[in-house]
């Protein structure tokens, strides 16, 4: 499912003394099946943008086209509800949305709202809980007995069970320990590849962006500053520094090594790839 944003302007508290323009005449698009990262410092308009993509906010001006559904200034609830079926959203700290008595019931909440029958919803919930490695004997337990990382997995399963074609994830690893961090990030990559869905990741973690995303959209002051391939944007140290973003560790390392004369063929995207690249480089230069 393709999403097109055309001339989107988003103003909070329009026509009051507290008026604030979060997005200004914003145009971009998201192709099906790709992994996108939306980056920019706090207040750049990232979270406003993603809320427009699934109808949580409606444009003040301009349109958001989701497949053949159009979101405009006064779009009806019925259309918005349709959009939510196609575009799923995992909020920051998604474990804060858990409410039901059992893990299974909580995951069924979204599918039921989408109009599925109890049996269908239960089948979906079981499928995605198993996918996330939640054992069947835990399905009947309360989600509140779990650790933070586990609760987050349940919340993510609740969104996946709605089987969206586009999945938006907002800071999915905030507050997680490094091990769970890697598990959660690997999970999104895996479902993107297995189910061929679009992922739109919003994060401050440039290492994650560099490792996982195909394309990057850089925002500042409610405007699109740059968009394009991850390896082009995240290797532009000046661009990142100008926008108060961190340089990915591997990029910094590769650039530092280049100055020393160690030059690789391509740019490794994570530590393991770096190790392979360096090993190859060494083998090549040992001769």
């Amino acid at each position: 499912m393709k999403i097109t944003v055309d001339g989107l302007t988003s103003i909070y508290h329009n026509n009051t003394p507290f008026e604030h323009t979060a997005l200004n005449n914003f145009t971009t698009s998201f192709e099906p099946g790709k992994y996108y990262a939306v980056i920019g410092r706090t207040g750049s308009g990232k979270s406003t943008l993603i809320q427009h993509l699934n109808g949580l906010l409606l444009p003040t001006r301009g349109i958001v086209q989701v497949g053949d559904l159009t979101l405009k200034h006064r779009t009806k609830q019925r259309i918005i509800h349709q959009v939510k079926k196609h575009v799923g959203m995992v909020f920051q700290f998604p474990e804060h949305q858990l409410f039901d008595e059992t893990i299974l019931k909580d995951v069924m909440f979204g599918p039921l709202n989408m109009g599925l029958t109890e049996e269908e919803a239960e089948a979906r919930a079981e499928k995605y809980l198993s996918l996330l490695g939640v054992p069947e004997r835990a399905f009947g337990r309360s989600p509140f007995d779990l650790s933070g990382g586990q609760m987050r997995k349940i919340a993510i399963a609740g969104i996946l069970a709605m089987e969206p074609e586009v999945l938006i994830v907002d800071e999915p690893t905030a507050g997680l320990d490094p091990k769970s961090h890697i598990e959660v990030m690997d999970l999104f990559k895996q479902i993107q590849e297995d189910f061929n869905i679009t992922i739109i990741l919003v994060t401050h973690d440039m290492n994650d962006v560099f490792e996982y995303a195909d394309e990057v959209k850089l925002l500042a002051g409610g405007q699109l500053i740059r968009e394009g391939r991850t390896e082009d944007i995240l290797t532009d140290e000046k661009l990142l520094t100008d926008h108060h973003l961190e340089i990915p560790d591997i990029v910094r390392l590769v650039h530092d090594l280049e100055r020393k004369g160690v030059v690789f063929e391509g740019m490794p995207r994570n530590t393991d790839a770096f190790i392979t690249s360096y090993r190859e480089w060494r083998a090549l230069h040992a001769q």
């Binding site: 809320q51 609830q77 509800h81 959203m89 909020f91 998604p94 804060h96 949305q97 909440f109 609740g158």
Partner: peptide, 19 residues
């Protein structure tokens, strides 16, 4: 803030408390 976030999160899960 928290209320707004939770409303949005549940609304993204298709909850329809407004209609």
């Amino acid at each position: 803030d928290e209320t707004e976030k939770i409303i949005k999160a549940q609304s993204a899960r298709g909850s329809t408390f407004m209609t």
